[in-house]
Computed example of a mutant assay.
Amino acid sequence: MSWKTAYRSIYYRGAPEPEDMVLDPATTALLVIDIQNTYRTRPDPAALTPEERERYDAWTPFHERLETVVIPNTRAMLEHCRAIGIECLFARIACQTHDGRDRSLSQKKPGWNNLLLPKDEWASQIVDELAPQGDEIVVTKTSDSALTGSSLRLVLHNLGIDTVMCCGLFTDQCVSSTVRSLADESFDVAVLEDCCAAGSDELHHKELEIVNMIYCHVMSSAEARAMIAPA
């Protein structure tokens, strides 16, 4: 099944197949969202209580996908885009203060999303395999959307970008929120599904179905590369 018929929700069953996207290197950017060290770390399972081990095991599929699918595919996409002159940009969650007092409310509430990632600490940095090179732009945010939580909108405008290919973490949270914001600002958006992950495969696939065709086109990184026009 190709991207033109995959991930269709009830809203788009029977709708005509979309046209191929026009991915002009001069006006297209690759945006890597929140693939940071904090999401890669895991505790020693031998030291966990039974309840903690249950949570550890529940997250194992995510970590396997991150290491074997998301990071390798995103790295390959970065290398391809750099070779042909496509702008590569990065967004990361990072607060400006040590105690996180500048964080948005969503990152202060109790629970999994209570994130304290001071900007200079190791946990908030982008993973080594995907590290920005040269003068590639990195924006920091304390919100889910990279567009509303940073200067990214202005940066894209100044670069002359009208189409954004998105990868990153988490499909159903910061990726989805960024995609919706981009669409509302009239950017064309592609989500590279094999460069994204959610806490579970179920959440990943369901969110892709929700955003597909209305906010973006969901496709694989290989399908996106096939639509990039010669530089």
Rank of each mutant, 00 (worst) to 15 (best):
T27R: 04
D57N: 10
H63D: 04
Q96F: 01
Q107F: 15
V175F: 03
H63K: 05
P61M: 08
P25G: 01
S200G: 03
D120Y: 14
Q133L: 03
L66F: 04
S181D: 15
Q36G: 10
T27M: 02
E67T: 11
T28N: 07
V211E: 06
C196G: 03
K4T: 12
E17G: 02
R8H: 10
Q125H: 15
R103W: 12
W122G: 14
L117M: 13
R180N: 02
A123H: 07
A226T: 14
Q125F: 13
L147D: 09
I71Q: 06
A231N: 13
G168N: 05
G168I: 03
I10Y: 13
P61D: 06
Y39H: 03
N73S: 09
M219G: 09
R75C: 12
W3V: 01
R8M: 08
L203R: 05
T148W: 01
C88V: 08
L182C: 03
I161R: 02
E52G: 03
K109P: 06
P61H: 09
P43D: 14
E64S: 04
E51G: 06
H157A: 10
A123R: 06
L156M: 10
V70R: 00
Q107T: 12
D34N: 11
S176N: 14
C167I: 02
V70Q: 00
S143Y: 10
S145Q: 11
Q36C: 13
K206R: 15
